[in-house]
Design a protein around this nucleic acid. Structure first.
Lengths: 128, 128
DNA sequence: CGGTATCCTGACCGATACTG
DNA sequence: CAGTATCGGTCAGGATACCG
């Protein structure tokens, strides 16, 4: 009676450890996955502070969605909303220090995204 | 007449460069975003090859969704489906070399996800 | 300018049952 | 075992109009 046939699929400790990894990625994607969250964070990081700047910079996002996402990001501690009294009222968004922990994630995603886009372009070119 | 008030929001070259970043992240999220794709890739990378192994390892995924995602991953060049003739027919999934390019992304996401989960837990504990 | 309100569609996805 | 078929529900997010 073999206990492990091949691969590590039925090794208990292995399965547990794999679950830790899987949960971590799940948590990460839950927090910053979705179409817009990371893009908004990046856009703020690169100097866009105003609502309209963000909407202009992030192609395709609607006001409704940007508004909702900013609220969520604020609630989750990624973004700070600053309201300066005066006339007209000046509203600026900025990142919290916690957003800086995303640096490596963003960097690797940008790198991969660039090379992936190149790959897709090459394949498309070959398809003719 | 000031040309640039403050920040870099209206600097053209800057905006362009920011768009490159934004597009890269958009492409990446389009390809490997969503609830399951990365988890499936990770799960295969860690030795799970069979359909049922994957379904067992990836908590919460239904057969229907796993099937659809595997097809998409195959079509996009991340996964290879191997069918060994015999009885019963043995079907195994494995990663293509291209999936290896995701290593850094996965690594940073796992790291961040782990610390994020810790942060959430701490905040939850404080809330009492 | 910085949003909200309303409405709506389609993508995603869970459950269940069935098949070769 | 490795899926497919069908159904139905939820929800992200798009369009548009409006508001202080």
């Amino acid at each position: 009676m073999k206990k492990i046939e091949e691969g590590q699929g039925n090794n208990k400790a292995f399965t547990e450890e794999c679950n830790v990894i899987l949960n971590a990625v799940g948590d990460a994607m839950y927090a910053i996955g979705g179409k817009w969250k990371l893009r908004i964070i990046i856009s703020i990081a690169r100097g866009n502070k105003r609502f309209s700047e963000l909407q202009r910079q992030i192609a395709g996002i609607s006001g409704r969605v940007l508004s909702a996402e900013l609220k969520e990001l604020e609630a989750n501690g990624f973004v700070l909303k600053k309201v300066a009294v005066g006339f007209p009222v000046l509203i600026e968004y900025e990142l919290t220090p916690y957003s800086q922990t995303l640096e490596k994630v963003v960097e690797s995603l940008v790198d991969w995204g660039k090379q992936h886009r190149e790959k897709i372009k090459r394949e498309f070119a070959e398809d003719k």
